[in-house]
């Protein structure tokens, strides 16, 4: 009950954030976004046709009206239809979000698990060559652009010039085997790029824990290194680790990975969002922004609750 009360209070406290995000984004979309009129017009438009289309797209209404309409849409979860191809926004989201999740989750999970594992190994062997090697590898991973990795992997693994093991592009989740075929190369690319950052961060956290007084005491007591690591260090490091993981979830869920999706032909939310931004398809953008804001607030709430569970010293005030 305590937690429930706390959650509700936190969610309500998150409302100003949601309002802020939607207001700022809406401002950006309306005043600084592309005018979609001209990409929808045919050849030889007359001035009358242009005005008509603009009115159809809702550009001639005052800002406040449109913003209030936006808020109403958020509450009722009905964002209308995309202006580019008339599909209902809710159906676009329902269709693309699961795909983006299916695409990013393996890489996300693997990247973090491997990151923690490598960080443990590195911290365990702190100062020795294994540590330096892993950190060097991490530094390399951090220094290569994601774009380069994607292009490189596609050539190496998928194209007929390279190993030709996987499909170049496409998406199919009808059977687990098919899913594996299509998700492998994107996942490898994601892990390659994320591993560097993750390993470094987790290693820093673990090393921080290692130098704490209670660990030094335990070591003085003669507790073996491995038990030390697992029981004392890893558990306590979970807080910052979990914080980081949970905080990156909204980004993965909603923004998707634009580059992965466009290069591998995966119909996910990232590509749809980018298209909407660039053409000024407002209904889609509004929905995505609102969803991101809500998820962000929820993520914050979750981390706070996690803190509470893990560290009883943190109060729920």
């Amino acid at each position: 009950m305590d937690i429930l009360q706390y959650s509700i209070r936190k969610l309500i406290a998150g409302i100003p954030l949601i309002l802020g995000v939607t207001l700022v984004s809406f401002l950006l979309i309306v005043y600084f976004g592309p005018d979609q009129t001209y990409s929808l017009l045919g050849k030889n438009p007359t001035a009358a046709e242009i005005a008509e289309l603009r009115s159809q797209l809702g550009y001639d209404q005052p800002f406040v009206t449109r913003y209030l309409q936006y808020l109403r849409e958020i509450v009722t979860l009905d964002f209308g239809s995309s202006q580019a191809n008339d599909e209902k926004v809710s159906s676009i989201l329902a269709r693309t979000i699961p795909v983006s999740l299916a695409l990013s989750l393996p890489g996300f999970v693997l990247g973090n698990l491997l990151g923690v594992a490598l960080a443990l190994v590195a911290a365990y062997n702190r100062g020795r060559w294994l540590d330096k090697f892993i950190m060097g590898f991490a530094a390399v991973g951090m220094s290569i652009s994601f774009l380069i990795v994607i292009i490189g992997f596609q050539i190496l693994l998928s194209s007929s010039d390279g190993l030709d093991l996987f499909p170049v592009r496409g998406w199919d989740t009808s059977t687990p085997l098919q899913y594996l075929r299509y998700v492998t190369v994107p996942t490898l690319a994601t892990v390659f790029v994320a591993l560097g950052y993750n390993t470094r961060f987790y290693r820093a956290v673990i090393v921080e824990e290692m130098t704490r007084d209670h660990v030094r005491t335990a070591r003085a007591f003669g507790i073996p290194q491995s038990q030390l690591f697992y029981k004392n260090i890893l558990k306590n490091s979970m807080i910052p680790i979990v914080t980081r993981v949970v905080f990156s979830i909204p980004l993965i869920v909603i923004s998707g990975s634009l580059l992965l999706e466009s290069y591998f032909g995966i119909p996910g939310i990232g590509y749809v969002t980018y298209d909407a931004i660039v053409t000024g398809d407002q209904p889609v953008l509004k929905a995505v922004v609102a969803l991101t804001a809500v998820l962000f607030v929820v993520a914050q709430l979750l981390t706070d609750i996690c803190y509470r569970i893990v560290d009883p010293r943190v109060s729920l005030k």
């Binding site: 954030l17 700022v24 950006l28 979309i29 600084f32 923004s255 660039v278 953008l285 962000f296 914050q300």
Partner: peptide
């Protein structure tokens, strides 16, 4: 929090 939640590309484009 607000700036963190606005999609980066949207911000850049705007």
């Amino acid at each position: 929090g607000v700036l963190d939640s606005v999609p980066f590309i949207l911000l850049v484009a705007a």
